[in-house]
């Protein structure tokens, strides 16, 4: 297994199968879907589509599911690990852009950004919150990033070994960035296209969750 794609999925019946099949079509063989205790047929659908499925017996959150997938990919000997969304927001054709800098040794981690180029149709409020998130990451961890919570990433084996996601929920995105800073990993932002549909907006995090994430970031700083 050279390139592994890790997808955290919670109640993604109806989209996870399409996402997996589409990745297969782009010739990615090792697709690991972590079913995070879904109540629907996410596991079955992903298995049928040809993914390697790991199942959390109870729901633990996206951060927890990604770490499970990453741990599994490392055990299977993956050299590059991609994290990808289950709801069809991300485009498989963007993956090579994420892999190249790692293969060339230019970066340990590639982070997706929807703001580097105008590659998205994010609604205004979403834009404000994500920009605010990026600013607070800069204040907290000193990394210059244009997008704070983009689920599209590529990790080298070295980076995946060093980064340990402890936040179960959505604050894992800031946690990963904190650990990139702590471990002095080389990172690069890659523009990626994100498609917002009514469905992805309804299923993704609500804008109000931003406050929750901010609180956890501050508490996380205090705890150390």
């Amino acid at each position: 297994m050279d390139i592994a794609i890790v997808i955290a999925a919670y109640n993604e019946q109806g989209s996870v199968g399409k996402v997996v099949k589409n990745l297969h079509k782009h010739n990615y063989q090792h697709i690991i879907v972590v079913d995070d205790g879904s109540k629907d047929k996410t596991s079955e659908e992903a298995t049928e589509a040809g993914a390697i499925v790991l199942r959390h017996i109870i729901n633990r959150g996206q951060g927890a599911a990604l770490q499970t997938g990453i741990s599994y990919a490392l055990k299977q000997g993956a050299n590059i690990i991609i994290t990808f969304d289950a709801d069809g927001q991300h485009k498989a054709k963007d993956i090579p852009k994420f892999i190249k800098p790692i293969e060339k040794g230019e970066a340990d981690v590639c982070l997706g950004s929807r703001f580097l180029k105008n590659t998205n149709n994010a609604p205004f409020m979403r834009r404000v919150i994500l920009k605010g998130g990026a600013l607070s990451l800069r204040i907290f961890y000193g990394l210059k990033l244009t997008d704070s919570h983009n689920g599209f990433r590529a990790l080298s084996r070295k980076a995946a070994n060093k980064i340990k996601i402890k936040s179960d929920g959505m604050e894992h995105a800031s946690e990963i960035i904190e650990q990139i800073a702590d471990n002095k990993l080389k990172y690069k932002e890659i523009p990626n296209t994100i498609t917002y549909s009514d469905e992805t907006l309804a299923k993704g995090q609500g804008n109000s969750n931003a406050i929750n994430i901010m609180t956890k970031m501050i508490l996380g700083k205090l705890k150390r």
Partner: peptide, 23 residues
């Protein structure tokens, strides 16, 4: 708060271990 957080992490580790072992 610290204790609950610690327990949450323990539960997650347990759930992860079960998922990996079943695989």
């Amino acid at each position: 708060y610290v204790k609950v957080e610690q327990q949450q992490q323990d539960i997650t580790r347990l759930v992860r271990q079960i998922a990996l072992q079943r695989k």
